[in-house]
């Protein structure tokens, strides 16, 4: 259950816990002071999630927890047991990029690529809830993700293009992209 590190003032115990990340249960041992960001990057090897401030001031570390975009730098890992965590590593289906990923790569939504995982996860939550968001809604949704490269315009366009592609796919397959049910 625990692993210890000696330290002044007595033993400090690590925690062992099962986290549900990108559809898989993973057992992980970590220092209890760690945030979800640190456990993902340092203990689970999921370095796709980035960090720019670790204080909730930039949005680079956004991941989905039970479908909602949260800042993993301010989520205690110890509070994540039993929750569904999604990171950028879980976006693609095998070799097939998620439409958001494809559109960001095609249309300049990713320049340096550093804020990109956080933006992608935030945009995924947006499109999961609204398959056809207007420009204003997109701006609002990603206004918690700072980007220093793009000026945001190509990010909006990438999200809009992804939404278009997803709607086209859904129309073709007859399923509704937001509820995964079959359209009447």
């Amino acid at each position: 259950m625990t692993d210890t590190q000696s330290a002044p003032g007595g033993a400090r115990r690590n925690l062992r816990m099962v986290l549900h990340v990108n559809g898989e249960d993973t057992e992980v041992l970590f220092a209890p002071y760690k945030t979800l960001l640190e456990v993902l990057r340092e203990d689970l090897g999921l370095t796709g999630t980035k960090h720019g401030c670790e204080l909730g001031e930039c949005g680079a570390c956004a991941v989905l927890v039970d479908g909602l975009p949260l800042l993993s730098c301010l989520v205690l890992a110890v509070e994540c047991e039993g929750k569904a965590i999604e990171t950028v590593e879980g976006l693609a289906r095998g070799p097939t990029l998620h439409p958001l990923q494809a559109a960001f790569a095609d249309l300049g939504g990713a320049q340096c690529g550093y804020c990109t995982p956080g933006v992608l996860m935030t945009a995924k939550a947006l499109l999961d809830g609204d398959p056809d968001p207007c420009r204003e809604k997109i701006r609002e949704a990603i206004s918690g993700n700072l980007c220093r490269c793009t000026g945001y315009q190509q990010i909006y366009e990438s999200i809009e293009e992804a939404a278009r592609r997803m709607r086209a796919d859904a129309a073709q397959s007859g399923s509704c992209p937001c509820c995964e049910g079959t359209a009447p």
Binding site: Y33, E38, L55, C73, V78
Partner: peptide
Amino acid sequence: MMRLPWFRFESP
């Protein structure tokens, strides 16, 4: 990376 100090955690 900014890190939290050690603490004990209770979840009532």
